[in-house]
Amino acid sequence: MHATESPLLRHDQDGITTLTLNRPQQFNALSEGMLEALQTQLDQLAHDENLRCVILAAQGRAFCAGHDLREMRATPEQAYYRQLFERCSRLMQSLRALPVPIIARVQGLATAAGCQLVASCDLAVASDSARFAVSGINVGLFCSTPAVALTRNLPIKRAFEMLVTGKFIDAATAAQWGLINQAVPDPQLEQAVQALARDICSKPGISIRRGKAMLYRQQMMALPDAYAHAAEVMACNIMDAEAMEGIDAFLEKRAPRWHAGAH
């Protein structure tokens, strides 16, 4: 990659923004530049009221090989590492905090912080040939920050097995365990991701935004508090014009007439 090339590409179309990791020769490792570029885009997208869905994709043979180990070894200082992992943790939380769904489009390898990226997205579709691992343990580093996202996707014993062995799992296993939503034949990956994104965009945006925020907030609550919060969100949601139209359409046995661009 030439020095003038951006580590991250952006494409906007019909309410869908695609962010593409663009360090293919480095297997899209999360360099400081990549982290900064991703964080900048997510911060901007968080305020885009026309946004409906985000796709996180990657150029080349790998989705993301995790942190840039060569760059990390160039500054062997604990303060530097602490700051680096804090930046990465903020990025992962920004994915969850983004008001609209974000879909990981995964091909090739997704390892360590790359696997964390997949786990931090709301949805994930992978090609059959994709493989996943939290392999830091193989170089003597337990993947502690990836473990946070991984254990919020997988049963604890499955996650711990991956963390302490560093072994790869294939796409079919990742789907079975809950790390991704589906695995599709390699030539169908783009089609499957676009179909999922378009399906999301066909629903009222305000309901999707309310729903995503509610889903992750209630997950951290005790059961009575979760139900109280969900009930309040649903009561507000049902007062939205789009929800009223959707219910009327159902009762009248017709297709709903959504307001274009409603959020």
Rank of each mutant, 00 (worst) to 15 (best):
T4R: 07
P7M: 09
P7G: 08
L8S: 06
L8C: 09
R10C: 11
Q13G: 04
L19Q: 02
T20R: 07
R23N: 09
P24R: 14
F27A: 05
N28K: 10
L30P: 14
L30V: 15
E32G: 15
G33W: 01
Q39H: 10
Q41I: 11
Q41G: 06
D43H: 08
D48P: 00
D48V: 14
N50L: 07
C53F: 01
A57N: 09
Q59K: 13
A62W: 05
A62G: 01
D68F: 01
D68W: 00
L69M: 06
E71K: 04
A74P: 03
E77K: 04
Q78N: 15
Q78K: 10
Q83I: 13
F85W: 05
R87Q: 03
S89F: 08
Q93G: 11
P99V: 13
V100N: 05
P101M: 02
P101E: 00
I102P: 03
L109V: 13
A110M: 00
T111A: 08
L117M: 06
S120M: 13
D122P: 01
A124Q: 00
A124D: 00
A124T: 05
S127K: 06
S135V: 15
I137D: 12
L141Q: 13
A147R: 02
L150M: 15
L154C: 04
I156H: 04
K157T: 01
R158I: 10
F160S: 03
F160R: 07
E161F: 12
M162S: 00
V164E: 06
K167T: 14
A172Q: 14
A172D: 14
G178F: 10
L179Y: 15
Q182W: 12
D186M: 08
V193E: 03
V193C: 05
V193Q: 04
D199F: 08
S202V: 04
P204S: 04
I206C: 07
R209A: 05
G211E: 09
A213S: 08
Q218M: 09
Q219V: 05
Q219M: 15
M220K: 15
L223V: 02
D225V: 02
A228P: 01
A231K: 08
E232A: 10
A235H: 14
A235T: 04
E242S: 07
I247R: 12
K253M: 08
K253I: 02
A255E: 03
P256T: 02
P256L: 08
A262N: 11
